[in-house]
Amino acid sequence: MMAETETETLTRMANQIAGFFAPYGEAEAVKEVAAHINAFWEPRMRRALLAHLDQGGAGLSPPVIAAAGLIRRPA
C-alpha cells in the first residue's frame, strides 16, 4: 500500500467523525464534527484541513464540508 498523504489521512479522519454523527441528522452532525475537530485537532492539523476545504475539500463528506465555517482557524 502506498502511504497516504497528509491530506488523505486528515480527509479519512474527518469523514470517520462525520460517519459517527450521521445518524444525528445533518444540522447536528455538522455542529458535532466541528466541535470534535476543534477539541481534539492540533492547529497544524486544522490548518491543513481548512486549506483543503478552501480548495473545495475533494473527498470530504458533506457534513465536513458544511462544518468548514465552524472549524476554528488557528492563529
Binding site: 497528509e6 489521512t9 477539541a39 481534539f40 485537532w41 492540533e42 492547529p43 497544524r44 492539523m45 488557528p74
Partner: peptide
C-alpha cells in the same frame, strides 16, 4: 490549543 496525539506526532515528523 490541543496538542498532537502520538499518531499525529509521527505523521508530522514524516512531514
Amino acid at each position: 490549543e490541543p496538542g498532537l496525539r502520538i499518531p499525529n506526532m509521527l505523521a508530522a515528523a514524516v512531514d
